[in-house]
Design a protein around this nucleic acid. Structure first.
Lengths: 257, 257
DNA sequence: AAGTGGTCTAGACCACCTG
DNA sequence: AGGTGGTCTAGACCACTTA
């Protein structure tokens, strides 16, 4: 290790990472380009392979590159955001008969696919119970768990929770809930959606989520806890959306009251 | 390594990580608790220290633990979300004379501090120019860059962009923009905020952001690109908020139109 | 001084992918 | 078959924290 001057007090792995980062930002390594192999980097910088590997890990952690086993390390493609507008709940958009996801996909020229992972009856977790205003801790809910794909790429996982006494024996218990999806059925039950409340957070995925969403390391998820309020401002539906953050943007446009 | 059955085809590092994850989820290792040292884990599982280290890296990547140099590895404290309601732009909240951030901090019983990182004149980037409806690529904007703290902990970095011809020579060029902050001055200029548009995304921080926000590895950021629209639905202010995701939740409540 | 994590070396074998 | 990343070993020294 030369470390000839005060030039770099930094660890070698960081210097290698910095050099690569600069090359990426300058466009010398453009999106999709392959980085030199770990062994090549190690030799170039006179370091052990593990040190070059650590440099690549730093870049992956920043979301700049992704490693493909057996192929190489590649500069990540720029984000193509799949936007979910706040008007996805809008009544006028439901006149098409499409569910919000299918409508958004169609707008963007993508094919939509929805896998039903399960429809079960269960005791809700405290955060769900609170938002559905369920106070009796014996009361159960219906949990509909779905997996959404756009152009066959996984985009989001959604868990929807409804009161058991309302859903019991209706199409709300079936994979295909009929025209306009579950909101159509809920409207027939007397719940007109008049306001929505979305609570948004971001975090790293659990291993389970990483698997379901096909997430490479270093990609966070956006979590939206959504509550629908009816004409009496009573909650009648709560959903938890988990989106892969590198393909999702959320857009909210609202009046200042 | 016993590997007595098909019990675990997984790498040793993942098995160690899984064991620790289970202990955390069961509460055997509660929030703030110290994990066994890397050397202790290595011995316990009959692995090299680097392997135990890799296990801890996996947990850190999932946001479960944080390493403190020279002290140990600790289970991360649960998130204390600092909520920014959609009503933070609300007119009625401005009657206090407080800026939105100071108001929100006060509500939560925290002290607010705002560092001004710079107020400069510059040519806007394309995404800012587009949202401010600036089409002449010579036209400049004022860029106010601030750093916000709650209880002296960094919470967000905010860049606010205003038209140069409106801000020039006014309090909008000063660190202290006067009563009600910049929105007070903009209202005097004839811009009544009637709608807002927030575009939300999440990603891993740049090294610069990690430094400014004091982010441990494995914590993503929430980015909000905010546009204020006036009574003519013309944009008059654009801001880019960068929040640390482990302390920030966003709440939007809006009517379904 | 002792213990902790941070970095690094110089190997090794395995799993995956491409020619 | 040969190259790539994925995992692992058994050491070493450094930087930081605590007692």
């Amino acid at each position: 290790m030369t470390r000839s001057e005060a030039f770099s007090q930094q660890p070698a792995s960081r210097r290698i990472a910095q050099a690569l980062r600069t090359a990426i930002e300058r466009g010398e390594l453009s999106a999709g380009a392959k980085l030199p192999s770990e062994r090549a980097l190690a030799e170039e910088y006179g370091a052990a392979r593990n040190t070059a590997r650590e440099a690549i890990r730093l870049l992956a952690e920043q979301g700049l590159v992704t490693a493909k086993h057996g192929r190489g390390v590649f500069v990540r493609e720029p984000q193509r955001l799949f936007r979910f507008g706040s008007d996805r709940y809008s009544l006028k958009n439901r006149e098409t008969g499409l569910t919000p996801f299918r409508l958004e996909a169609k707008r963007q020229g993508k094919t939509a696919r929805i896998d039903v992972l399960g429809i079960t009856r269960e005791v809700p977790s405290p955060d769900i119970a609170e938002r559905l205003k369920i106070r009796d801790d014996q009361e159960t809910v219906v949990h509909r768990k779905n997996h959404y794909f756009a152009d066959d790429e996984p985009v989001q996982i959604v868990s929807t929770y409804l009161r058991w006494d309302e859903a019991q024996g209706t199409l709300l218990m079936q994979p295909k809930a009929g025209p306009h999806g579950i909101y159509g059925r809920l409207e027939e039950l007397g719940h007109v959606m008049t306001r929505v409340r979305d609570e948004i957070s971001a975090r790293m995925p659990t291993p389970e989520e990483a698997r379901l969403l096909g997430l490479p390391p270093g990609v966070p998820v956006l979590e939206v806890l959504h509550t629908s309020l009816d004409q009496d401002l009573e909650p009648f539906e709560v959903s938890r959306y988990v989106h892969r953050a590198d393909r999702t943007g959320l857009l909210y446009e609202l009046p200042v009251e």
